[in-house]
Each structure stands twice: as structure tokens, then as C-alpha cells.
């Protein structure tokens, strides 16, 4: 699916991460020295941020949003819709966006919407925000909050997931402007592989039972329960190498541009090795791939805006940036965007 927006832009973007840094030393019980070296060499993660027990994704999102609203000095009454995108919401019912609407002291005259989306979530959420603002009166904006605390759903004794994920949040304000450059999206989905990244129990297909708390051990001695995140690493790796570059090339072709004209590529920060492989498939120089996986790990849908915040001095001078998200669902999607008019603020540790 291809879509093009004219006259809509990201007005501002701010990001927050927990102050607690968790280095790879924390996982010495899972990997030997050589395995750790290979992990750092390939996956590329050296440390990640994990929220403390009492801090939720919406807490991180609240700080990012509050920071953004204050710094931009926009009127809260101009926010016509609030989207909260996360897989680690406060409750199953109700929407966390409602909780944030009240906590941020926003108007009652607005639409609140939660989206449960994974590593492609930023692209999906951004597309939703662009679609919404399109139908709002001039001057109204949409607040998108992407926030995750995946540290709370992984087994700390499963080396296939525990070392990969970090926590964080970004807040993004989307509005109309006659001076905005075109923004283009494309999306893909393969529901046949829905179980490649999954928490098996706790929904309404497999409700929580006594067995949901049983610790299971795999052939590599990783242990987890059906309430933890499960990932078919090999299958997901296979998918990203087959599909992501094809999807990006498709967007580049549909928008009539070329790889050489793209200033930067910001790919979901899942794995440094994957990012390098995709760069090679695209025949794009590695210098154009913006990466911060070494410091924050895989923060799911937050990873792309977290890179944008981290490279705020660089991306504001660029005209053409490709954003690419891919993950659970399986979903993958891309966006060609100009951030030169966007107010981007550096990452805030809280």
C-alpha cells in the first residue's frame, strides 16, 4: 500500500529514556566471553536503558510529551487527537491515551486512540497521525506518543531476547503547513507469520492459566514462561533480509527519487548486522545509516524517533530521509520524509 501526504509535517519531536543503564556485563551469566564478543560485534548492543519497577511506558511517554509541549510552547487546546502507540500499555482496559490526556491536562474535546504495534509501529503511528490531522481544522495538531518498556515482558534468562531490548519513549507533534514537503509511506504485512514474535498467553486466545507461569527450558537452556516475549530469531532475520530492502526500493521508485538522493536512512534498530546487510542490498554507503543501537538496544517502535533525537543536529540539515520499520505481525513499512523544518530535541534521561 502506497500513500502520499501533502501539506502535513512533523512539527516537533522529543524523546525520553530511563536513566538506568544496563551494560552487557549484566548478562555474563548467559554468555561466555567469546559469545559476548560476537554479540557485540554482530548485534552491536553495548548497553540499554531499563525502566525501574514502578515506571511504565506511559510515564516515559508523559515526560517526552510534556517536554515537547513546553519547549514548543504550543497551546494544549490545539491538540485535537492523542495517539498512544505501545505494546506495554498501563492496562488492557482502558486506553492509556485517555490516562495521558488527563495527566497532560489536555482538552476533553479530543480523540484518544491506542495502537498496539511493534517494531514497525513508528511508521504506522506516523501514518495514522498524518491521516488524522488531514481531517482536523487548520491549526489543530495530533500528538503521537510512542513508548515501550519491553524490559518488563522479557525473560531475563532468555538470551534470545533479554539482551536485545531497551526502554524509551518519543513524543511527536504533527500538524498542517503549506510549506511542508511531501511525505510518502508504503506498508506491507504477512499475517501468516504472526507467531514469529509473540507473547503466547495472556490474551483471549490463550488466557492466563496456572500453566502460564510454568518456566520452560529450550535446547539452549534459555528459560521463559508463555507470558514472556518469544521470538523466532532466525525466521525474523530471514524476513528482514528478504523484504526490507525490497520495500525501501519500492518506495524510492514510487516517489521518483533514487538511492543517491537520500541523505540518510534510519532503520529500526534491531541488529547492527541486519542494518549493514540492508545497506549493502540498497548499495547505500554505511555512513548514511544512522545508528544508536549500541547505547539503547532495540526499543521497538521507539527506535526510529530515538535515532532522530540522537542525531538532531544532522537530520535537520537533510532534505530526504528514509525511515524503515519492521517487526511483529509481521509488519513492515517505510516513509520518505523531510525533517528540515522539524524542531527536534535531544534525548532526555529521566
Amino acid at each position: 500500500m502506497y500513500s502520499n501526504f501533502n501539506g502535513i509535517e512533523i512539527i516537533g519531536l522529543a524523546s525520553s529514556v530511563p536513566k538506568d543503564q544496563v551494560s552487557n556485563n549484566f548478562f555474563e551469566h548467559l554468555l561466555n566471553e567469546k559469545e559476548m564478543r560476537m554479540f557485540e560485534k554482530t548485534v552491536g548492543i553495548k548497553e540499554r536503558r531499563w525502566a525501574s519497577v514502578n515506571v511504565t511506558a506511559s510515564d516515559l511517554g508523559y515526560h517526552a510529551a510534556n517536554d515537547l509541549i513546553l519547549k514548543l510552547g504550543i497551546s494544549k487546546s490545539d491538540i485535537g487527537a492523542l495517539i498512544f502507540l505501545s505494546q506495554t500499555s498501563d492496562y488492557i482496559i482502558p486506553f492509556t491515551s485517555n490516562i495521558l490526556q488527563h495527566r497532560l491536562n489536555l482538552s476533553n474535546s479530543m480523540m484518544c486512540l491506542d495502537i498496539n504495534a511493534g517494531c514497525a509501529g513508528f511508521i504506522q503511528g506516523l501514518y495514522t497521525a498524518f491521516s488524522m490531522v488531514n481531517s482536523l481544522p487548520d491549526g489543530k495538531v495530533v500528538l503521537l506518543i510512542v513508548a515501550e518498556t519491553l524490559s518488563k515482558i522479557i525473560s531475563k534468562n532468555d538470551k534470545s531476547t533479554s539482551m536485545l531490548f531497551g526502554d524509551g519513549a518519543s513524543a511527536i507533534l504533527v500538524g498542517k503547513s503549506k510549506r511542508a514537503a511531501d511525505t510518502c509511506f508504503n506498508f506491507f504485512s504477512d499475517g501468516s507469520k504472526y507467531d514469529s514474535i509473540i507473547i503466547p498467553d495472556g490474551g483471549f486466545r490463550n488466557g492466563v492459566t496456572q500453566q502460564s507461569f510454568d518456566v520452560q527450558k529450550d535446547e539452549k537452556n534459555n528459560t521463559k514462561t508463555p507470558l514472556n516475549l518469544y521470538m523466532n530469531g532466525q525466521g525474523v532475520f530471514d524476513f528482514t533480509l528478504r523484504e526490507v530492502a525490497v520495500g525501501i526500493n519500492s518506495l524510492i521508485s514510487e516517489t521518483g527519487t533514487s538511492i543517491n538522493e537520500i541523505d540518510f536512512f534510519i532503520l529500526h534498530q534491531s541488529n547492527n548486522y541486519i542494518i549493514n546487510q540492508i545497506a549493502a542490498q540498497l548499495e547505500a554507503p554505511k555512513q548514511k545509516m544512522l545508528v544508536n543501537i549500541q547505547s539503547f538496544g532495540n526499543t521497538s517502535g521507539v527506535s526510529i524517533p530515538l535515532v532522530i533525537s540522537d542525531y538532531h543536529n544532522v537530520v535537520r540539515n537533510a532534505n530526504k530521509i528514509i525511515l524503515s520499520g519492521y517487526g511483529s505481525g509481521l509488519n513492515w513499512g517505510n516513509c520518505l520524509i523531510n525533517l528540515s523544518r522539524t524542531n527536534i530535541f535531544p534525548i532526555n534521561s529521566i
Partner: peptide
Amino acid sequence: SMSAMILIGVVAQNFGVT
């Protein structure tokens, strides 16, 4: 799984085969 990842990378970079 990391070995598999490295193997895939080596083959892709040197032979253009995924």
C-alpha cells in the same frame, strides 16, 4: 544463531546470494 547470521552476511557480501 549468531553463526547463522554471520554466515548469511559473508555469503551475501561476497556472492550476492541471500
